[in-house]
Design a protein around this nucleic acid. Structure first.
Length: 408
DNA sequence: TGGGGTCCT
DNA sequence: AGGACCC
């Protein structure tokens, strides 16, 4: 891969961590570690008490530890930000595809319709007051000369979508597709190649920066996430450029140490921009959401139950006790919900089944009772249709709490 | 607002 | 198979 620099913004002198700041950080780091030891001691004490009373000691996650340290300004546990995740989100996907297929649409206000609904619109239309998705009659009212393309045939969108994922996959196989227009890319394995003085400036936005005066930085954590995420911002830029070159499609990206934050932040500056968020900003990100419903992973049914418990904002969820949640959710989910509200997400990026030539046999077996899936319509890759990818190396281990249980 | 996807039970 | 989540 090329080592040439992109048009990276250079951090202003005064933004670079000075020696004084570094020393300050070290002190904070020391303080932090001290506090951490205290908390862990406390926890061990409680575990012993529990044992004495014949109760099975409660499992204490890193997150809970970090919660107990919350009064500390940097309630962060070192070495828990090891991954680097990029979330890629295509700008108004359907509209862009149509604009690439017919460039004359570029400068016109464009809407993509499916039945009575305009499912998306391009940015020209949006700049004229048309929303993302509206009833067609309403859209026409706002903008009579809105151009419509019918988007009920998804085949082109599918093609572009797999092409986009393929670009990401050319960097690393760890790509998870989410719908047609989103991809999670776990770049942990390759981000090290981009940690160098050449890439020491952050590419694109930092969450919360105001374009001009980007605050930052210093290294409040010290686990290396600052360097990894900075490098990740360059990789994200590179992936986006590659996508643009090979497909003509622009997209946004979010860079973070977990999927949740990467996704939440990827749309923060739109379109065709990218944003990185650091672990110590997790709270700010979560506070920028009002309703807990807008946390990915909290769907309508979960949210209804939460409302029953008088929990509807992110903050309320943060402050809810595990025992309250436990009245309506099982323990795992209760923890999961609290995790989410704090921007904590250990969910792994799961390789999406790129057909990768597994399942040929299955395909032949099933052809007899095939229900008119036209295998012929696919351009390359003969029999890739929709095989239940049962095989799927079950590599990505689900998180197993027991593994963390050693608290000696 | 609906069709298609994945994951979990 | 059904539920819950996502776009």
């Amino acid at each position: 891969m090329g080592t040439k620099a992109f048009n990276s913004k250079v951090l202003k002198e005064e933004s670079r961590p000075s020696i004084v700041q570094r020393m300050e950080n070290q002190e904070r780091q020391k303080k932090f570690e001290q506090k951490q030891k205290e908390v862990e001691k406390e926890i061990r004490q409680e575990q012993r008490e529990a044992l004495k009373q014949g109760i099975r000691p409660k499992f204490v996650t890193n997150k809970e530890k970090s919660l107990r340290m919350a009064e500390d300004e940097w309630a962060l546990i070192p070495d828990q930000h090891q991954r680097t995740i990029v979330h890629i989100d295509v700008d108004c996907f359907y509209a862009q595809v149509e604009m690439v297929r017919d460039p004359s649409l570029r400068d016109k206000p464009l809407g993509i319709k499916q039945k009575n609904l305009m499912v998306t619109s391009n940015y020209v239309a949006r700049s004229m007051g048309v929303k993302k998705s509206m009833w067609i009659k309403d859209a026409v009212k706002i903008l009579p000369n809105l151009v419509f393309v019918d988007g009920s045939d998804l085949t082109h969108y599918r093609q572009f979508s797999t092409e986009i994922s393929a670009v990401a996959q050319s960097f690393t196989p760890n790509v998870e597709r989410l719908g047609l227009d989103e991809n999670y890319v776990d770049i942990t394995d390759i981000v090290g190649d981009y940690i160098s003085p050449e890439y020491s400036a952050i590419e694109g936005h930092v969450f919360g920066d105001k374009e001009e005066d980007r605050k930052v930085l210093g290294d409040p954590c010290g686990c290396g996430c600052l360097q990894r995420l900075t490098a990740g911002s360059h990789l994200a830029k590179k992936i986006r450029q590659q996508i643009l070159e090979t497909t003509g499609i622009t997209c946004c990206a979010g860079v973070a140490h977990n999927k949740l934050l990467a996704k939440l932040v990827s749309g923060y500056y739109k379109p065709n921009q990218q944003t990185v968020v650091f672990p110590w900003q997790a709270h700010d990100v979560m506070e920028s959401l009002k309703q807990a419903r807008s946390i990915p992973g909290i769907g309508s049914t979960t949210f209804k139950i939460l409302e029953d418990l008088n929990i509807s904002t992110v903050q309320e969820l943060q402050n809810a006790s595990l025992s309250t949640l436990h009245t309506r959710f099982d323990e795992e989910t209760s923890k999961r919900l609290k995790d989410l509200s704090y921007g904590i997400d250990e969910g792994l990026v799961r390789k999406s089944g790129k057909p990768q030539s597994i399942g040929l046999e299955d395909a032949f077996k099933k052809t007899s009772k095939q229900k008119s899936w036209d295998l012929t319509s696919q351009t390359h890759q003969p029999a890739k249709g929709r095989l239940k990818q049962k095989v799927k190396e079950r590599k990505p281990q689900r998180l197993k709490p027991k593994a963390l249980l050693n608290l000696m």
